[in-house]
């Protein structure tokens, strides 16, 4: 339990660090030196030092947005087994709670964006409302496969201890598709290239960034921290899926986990460097691919374990 809480705190505090790795990788591909790896901490400190300007159009929903989005991101992390350890909390069906808590944070992010009466933020909100629908279906598809394999409906049953290796033994190669599918979900849910470009300059083409245009100061800091945590959540799952080994030493598992995390973040960075973002109407198709992959993996796995 203590270990889990320490890992949870580690997750929240390390999330900005790992996100900076993406920037480093992008800089490497661009032939630049890139920002320091602690850049996100500097940004957060800078934001927390500042005051805020609120639009006259806004109401309490605008202030609730950052609180709920960070709150739900760190709540979700409590249910996640980090580095193969047990999660702080876990119960049968916690996956549903996790996905719907993310939905709650989405609701409030969108509501905060609509609160400003800005046409750009409305546009971003409309897109933010659309893509995660398919992502959610794909995520449920993945968990349907996991449930069929393990008979359990909690993250701990898939990602803690030896359970992930057991998953590999049961499903085998189709789990590769699941990893791909999950990676697509990661990219879409966290507004990365090719679904969205966090570094774009034109408000018309943004999804997530445009929704927080009006937030400033500590509010923006909370949102940023929340999105780091969200990315960390997905990366942890993929890290565990690609490196499920427990080699006996308690420290070694953690090192492997960090290695996996680094791999995921570097992969995100590489993708951002070599792929251009998709045209807006091609994004649903991209997300649908993740659903198709998960569905497909489920079918062929069922054929195997029959």
């Amino acid at each position: 339990m203590i270990e889990s809480i320490i890992l949870w705190l580690f997750a929240i505090s390390a999330a900005p660090f790992f996100s900076a790795m993406i920037l480093k990788v992008k800089a490497f591909f661009g032939g630049r030196k890139g920002p320091p790896l602690l850049i996100n901490y500097y940004t957060l400190i800078k934001l927390f030092k500042k005051g805020s300007v609120y639009s006259t159009s806004t109401t309490i929903m605008f202030k609730l947005g950052p609180i709920i989005s960070l709150g739900s991101a760190i709540t979700v992390l409590m249910f996640l087994p980090i580095a193969g350890q047990q999660a702080i909390f876990s119960f049968n069906g916690d996956i549903i709670f996790i996905l719907y808590t993310m939905g709650l944070s989405r609701f409030f992010t969108i509501a905060a964006a609509m609160d400003t009466a800005s046409p750009f933020e409305g546009m971003g909100a409309a897109r933010e409302a659309y893509f995660p629908i398919i992502c959610e279906a794909a995520t449920f598809m993945i968990f349907i496969l996991f449930y069929r394999l393990t008979g359990e409906l909690q993250l701990s049953a898939y990602f803690s201890g030896d359970n992930t290796i057991a998953l590999w033994n049961l499903a085998g190669a189709p789990l590769l598709f699941i990893i791909f599918s999950f990676f697509i979900i990661l990219l879409t849910e966290n507004s990365r290239v090719p679904a969205d470009d966090p570094a774009t300059h034109l408000e018309l083409t943004m999804i997530h960034e445009v929704m927080v245009l009006d937030h400033s100061g500590p509010d923006l800091g909370l949102i940023e921290l929340g999105s780091f945590c969200k990315l960390f959540f997905y990366s942890t799952i993929i890290s565990r899926l690609i490196l499920p080994f427990d080699l006996g030493f308690p420290g070694l598992a953690f090192v492997l986990y960090l290695l996996g995390l680094a791999l995921v973040y570097i992969a995100v960075g590489v993708i951002e460097s070599i792929i251009a973002r998709y045209r807006m109407d091609a994004v649903p198709q991209f997300v649908l691919t993740s659903f198709a992959l998960a569905f497909f993996a489920t079918i062929i796995t069922l054929e195997f374990i029959r």
Partner: peptide
């Protein structure tokens, strides 16, 4: 989270203005 937000907004100047129109 609310506590953090309260802590960092303590004694700061909060201004109101129009929405940023890009």
């Amino acid at each position: 989270v609310i506590a953090i937000r309260w802590f960092f907004y303590r004694g700061k100047i909060i201004r109101r203005s129009g929405t940023w129109g890009c």
